Amino acid sequence: MIKLGTRRSALATAQAALVADALRNLGHEVDLVPIVTTGDVNRAPLEQIGGTGVFVSALRDALLAGEIDIAVHSLKDLPTAPVDGLTLGAIPVREDPRDVLVARDGLTLGELQTGALVGTGSPRRVAQLEALGLGLELTGIRGNVDTRIAMVADGKVDAVVLARAGLARLGRLAEITETLDPIQMLPAPGQGALGIECRSDDTAVLAALAPLDDPGTRAAVTAERQLLATLEAGCTAPVGALAEVVDGEDGPELWLRGALGEDGGGVRRLSANGSVDDPAAVGRALANELLEQT
C-alpha cells in the first residue's frame, strides 16, 4: 500500500487522484491521506507567512516522519532548495502552463476598461500586468479556485487571473474568457507540472514512480526552477519562466524564456537555449544574464 499525502483543497485532491489512478493502473494499491498545511488555514498574504512553501512543509514533515510515502505538489509551490532525505521521484507530463483570465461578460484582457479591477495574489502577475500598460487596477486576493471565480460572479472584481492547469484538472475550462499568451504573461516556474516527492532511500516507491516520470517535462521545469534559484528569489518573487523542448539543428534542445520584475516597475525579459541534457545550466545562464542587466 502506497500512502499518498495531499492537501484537502479541491484542486489538491483532484491532482492527488490523478496520481493515485495512474499508480493503480500500474497495479499498486494507493490510500489518500489528507494533510492540513499552514497555507490552508492562514489567509494572510503569502509573502507575510513565508511564501508558497507554506503549502508543502506539512506534507514534507509527514513524509520524513513516515506517515505517508509520497506527496503530490503543484510544482510551482515547491521551494527550489532541496530537503535532505527527500527527492522528486516523478514529474509527470505537464498540463498547459499558461495563465488565463476569467472575466465578467466574457471579456478578454484587452476588452477590460481602464480602471477595471483585476484580482490576483501573485507579484509575478502584477508585475507583468502593470508592464502591459492597460491601466488596470490590481487587487490582492487569496483563496481556492471557487472563491476566486465567485468574486467575479459576485461583482467584487471584474476579472481574476488563474493558472489554466488548475481549471483543467477541475473540469472548469469553460469558465475561461481568455488564455494569456506567454508573450504577455510568462507563467510561474514549474506552473502546470506536478511534483511527486518521496523519501530518497525508499527504493520500492521510487521504482513505482519511475513510469510516471516524463523526461521532457522534467528538463523544462528543472531549467525554470534553476533560473528561480539562481536569482535567489522566493516563490512569491516577480519571476516568470517557461521552458520547452524544441527541435534544433542538431536534435532536441531546450528553449527557456525568463521575466523578472524590476523595482519601480517594468519587466526585464530574455531567452536562452541549450542542451536538454543539462537543463540546470540553461536556467543558470539565463538568470545570470538577467542579473547582469540590473
Rank of each mutant, 00 (worst) to 15 (best):
R124C: 14
G166S: 10
L132P: 06
A163W: 00
G155D: 11
L112N: 08
G140C: 02
A90D: 05
R94L: 00
V100R: 01
M151C: 04
D99A: 14
L107G: 10
A208M: 13
V152Q: 06
L227V: 01
A223D: 02
T222N: 06
L206K: 13
D105T: 00
A210Y: 09
L206H: 12
N144G: 14
E224Y: 01
L162E: 15
A207E: 15
A127N: 04
L231K: 04
L134E: 08
L112W: 10
E130T: 15
L112P: 12
L109D: 10
V100M: 01
A204M: 14
L134P: 02
I149N: 11
E224G: 03
E137S: 15
R218S: 02
A150D: 15
L129K: 10
E130P: 08
D105Y: 08
L109C: 05
I176D: 03
L167W: 10
E178M: 10
Q184T: 12
E111T: 06
Q184S: 13
S122T: 09
A131V: 10
I91D: 01
G190N: 06
T179I: 13
L227P: 00
I176W: 09
P97K: 00
T139H: 13
G106N: 07
G110R: 14
R98H: 05
A153L: 14
S122I: 03
A208I: 02
G192D: 12
L129N: 07
L227N: 00
P92M: 02
G133P: 08
V102I: 13
R169E: 15
D214M: 03
V152N: 10
Q191V: 05
D154I: 06
P215Q: 11
L167P: 07
P97M: 05
G192F: 11
R98G: 01
V102L: 09
G110M: 12
A103I: 08
G121L: 08
A223C: 04
L167S: 09
D96R: 00
D105S: 07
A188E: 14
